[in-house]
Write a protein that binds this DNA or RNA. Sequence first.
DNA 1: TTTGGCACTCGACGTCTCCGAGTGCTACTA
DNA 2: TAGTAGCACTCGGAGACGTCGAGTGCCAAA
Lengths: 341, 341
Amino acid sequence: MLTERQLEVVLSVVYDYITTGEPVGSRTVSRRYLTGKSAATIRNEMSELSEMGYLNQPHTSAGRVPTAKAYRLYVDSILQRRREPLQALDPLPKELKSRRDDAEAALSMISQLLARLTHSIGLAGVEVMEEVLVQRIDFLPVDSRHALVLTVLKGGLVHHRMIEFPLEIRPADLEELSSRINLLASGRAWNEVRQSLSEYLAGTLDHLSRSCFSALEAIDELLSGRSMRIFAGGAHHILGLPDFQDIGKLQALMALLEEESSLEKLVRSVPQSEGLSVVIGEENPLEELQNCSIVLSSGQSAGRRLVLGLIGPQRMDYEGAIVLLEGLLPHLTAGDDGDRQ
Amino acid sequence: MLTERQLEVVLSVVYDYITTGEPVGSRTVSRRYLTGKSAATIRNEMSELSEMGYLNQPHTSAGRVPTAKAYRLYVDSILQRRREPLQALDPLPKELKSRRDDAEAALSMISQLLARLTHSIGLAGVEVMEEVLVQRIDFLPVDSRHALVLTVLKGGLVHHRMIEFPLEIRPADLEELSSRINLLASGRAWNEVRQSLSEYLAGTLDHLSRSCFSALEAIDELLSGRSMRIFAGGAHHILGLPDFQDIGKLQALMALLEEESSLEKLVRSVPQSEGLSVVIGEENPLEELQNCSIVLSSGQSAGRRLVLGLIGPQRMDYEGAIVLLEGLLPHLTAGDDGDRQ
DNA sequence: TTTGGCACTCGACGTCTCCGAGTGCTACTA
DNA sequence: TAGTAGCACTCGGAGACGTCGAGTGCCAAA
């Protein structure tokens, strides 16, 4: 177990390393943080902390650098004393307001905003939960074999997709189909009505049963398969940082960010027990991210889960990141909610 | 004017520099390309070419590097002899097929595909021309003051947007509105019917005139304002290249790629007289791109203009780029066309 | 006009040295 | 016994220096 003073030393080293980016020596700690103690004393403590796995030496005659274990300590200490009143920050930029109607554009903007504010990579995503309420579902005829399926969910999320029917289908049939679906599904959760809907349709519209089947399939895909949209923005902000010297790794990271499926995997791999979680360096399952840290925050409203996050160097400004995400998230979930109920 | 031999030398230098990335000396040219002539001869030619502004010396005792002027010569020579039969290349990956119904996802994939094949940045965009034919336009009620406007264009492009009405509006009115709009607009070009539609609606639905007005506004925005969607993909491919050592510039470039409006400006700034155009280095109006080259190719079908492009270092493989873009474009325009008429 | 020869230039690279920050250890002190 | 001061030691970084070699420009000869 760590003594009180050892803890102070670790936190000082982490703090100093985060701000300066250079290995921290005993003298620095003694002068800047534990002014009562001499460098020699600190040296002894640091030597022990090295053995315990909290600090690392890049080489013999250099200062110490925190390990993931030390960062963890630091982050936990932030999380503990964070129960102070969070001032409601960030009057949302109005550009964002103007995109209220287009969830995807808004997410992309938010990710870029986050990145800009923190000089790291911003993440913004939304996941449609199974319980999301359907507002309406429509089929718009395109030609005799194709129609556009359009789902509008409570809260303003809109999906559309072109589907192909196994047989020709008349516009009137489509209208019939959508009005029946709406009758049962509107205002309810899709996963709730899905089963009964299928039976009901099979019973009443049996001349169209095969077409109904493919329509339901398509809706299923829309509402569950592709149910998470996630955007990463502002990747260029980390380009200058001394922490990302290794171009090869940087490249791998950038490649990962472009793959929405990888991002999804990333977000899902983070334990989302509480609203906020921090993954530090090697704690990360994905190799490309092992010299990064991730702060993720998620909130839920109206059957959707909103995820905000930041990816930065291990020595990122955790405190700023946490405050930002915790300050922003309620704004967004609340705002989306109150908009059009 | 250049002599025959000077031309040969310039082209050799460009070619060699493109393949090796290192300044080219007179001996290299003499040995690899103009085997008949000695290094000294080449040296004299090169010295003159330097004065004429085709070649540059990074420093006194280094080989020559081509200037934009030389690249221009090189590219033009490719474009001239390119009139050979282009083998139909690239059986489109099937993933692309599966995204036929979602134009935006497809564009994003294409941009990444292009990037992967050429190790540069891929661009893919689509612009809705004024002459695009409307397939249908619908209003779906969301609540008493809001509706979703949905426009389906010939060729499968779908846009939607939430609009707010100045007054309450009943679902029946919306239906009335959309059926009237469709009556006049379906199968026609928006810019053709826009004016008469406005008058017609004002005449027949005057109790809703203010609402009609905002609806038409919204459609206008959908079909003209935001009419170009463009994606840049695979930016990580240029990270390793020796040509992009300067992190600052790279950062500016990446930032530009994330701004769709900048990309749009970029594409529009390129003269699109012929189907294919190449912009080299300083020829570029945007400062961020002055050490890049851009190859853009565009084709038109069904009222939409499809744009494919590549952004790479000045010493990019122009020949490969040109062949790729010219080979791919017809596939895509044709494919999109034949799909659902 | 072309070519071979030659002196010259200049960056890349390796070696060497010096400097200083930081360490570990030991002996001294309160 | 914990804390402190002193000291020898280590090691990377920066700068000085020398060498190497690719490439040039120019001149004189073919």
